[in-house]
Design a protein around this nucleic acid. Structure first.
Lengths: 157, 157
DNA sequence: TATTGTTATACTCTATAACTATA
DNA sequence: TATAGTTATAGAGTATAACAATA
């Protein structure tokens, strides 16, 4: 008579959604959606990132990327430059303001991490999650919750 | 320079979404959606469960519950009976067929659990997740991913 | 001919608000 | 007056398909 709370997969999913939703809520004061946080994070590495690449990396369809970057650009957090190698594409870059806002968001994430568990437990959890993620074949930094899907939660990360 | 994969909260969310999505995919051959699985699970405890109670428990709005139970009833997995104490309400019951299908779904969940990690690691993970869930104040068996939200993934559990 | 960015249209799902019947 | 179930309407969001510019 296994209860749902005895299933690691259920607990994992339950906690994962909870944490994602909580992160989304804490991001609201920054007027930033989890998908945009993902974008800023990916852009922060620099380089000539095309919208196509950005969408492919985060699992967001390219026609949705347009609107999200429209918003980021309108707010001065990112900008479309001319792509040096391909005149069809944009090279999306993070602005200083965008980098600053990303810093705020990361501090929020730090807080969330800190609240999750005590230091020792958190380290142990991180280790186990890494093993499970590798076993599941998950790609680094690719969050399936960001993908468009048929009505995916814009608030859930 | 903390990568996203160094954040337990991100990994938790990433793995949680992945597991939920995978569970949803494996449930498809049974023509059962994760939310319906949640309903069958809750109904399996028996008793006179009203639609209101079911929705409140799973975080699904009552007007959405109607359609989901319509489907379950049409397929002979659940049925609406007269509620003995309140003539406004239905007493939703699981049928034998519904109980059987729930068994199939639980076996699918068992497989997913088994694939997650080796036995020892899985036990350790379960322990840590329990602690984190308690710390976060999560309720037993209440999955925030099932909630309606502004465009919540019907495929993600 | 394929690809990048963009826009428009159709579809799916939820939110809100009503309504009936009971309490 | 409030609540259980139901239905209808409107809204938010995505998928699909087109398009122009460029490869």
């Amino acid at each position: 008579m296994s209860s749902l709370t005895d299933r690691p997969s259920f607990l994992l999913s339950q906690l994962g959604f909870h944490v994602a939703a909580e992160f989304g809520r804490r991001l609201e004061p920054l007027d930033l959606r989890p998908r945009q946080f993902g974008m800023l994070t990916y852009l922060s590495a620099g380089g000539n990132v095309t919208q196509q690449e950005l969408g492919a990396r985060l699992g967001i369809h390219r026609n949705v990327v347009v609107g999200l970057i429209d918003d980021l650009e309108r707010r001065g957090l990112a900008e479309r430059r001319k792509h040096p190698d391909d005149r069809r594409a944009h090279a999306v870059r993070l602005t200083d303001l965008g980098r600053e806002l990303l810093g705020h968001a990361e501090r929020i994430a730090d807080e969330l991490d800190a609240e999750l568990l005590g230091d020792d437990d958190r380290q142990a959890l991180l280790h186990l999650l890494h093993r499970a993620a590798a076993r599941a074949g998950l790609q680094h930094g690719v969050h399936p919750g960001l993908q468009a899907g048929p009505g995916n939660a814009p608030g859930a990360c």
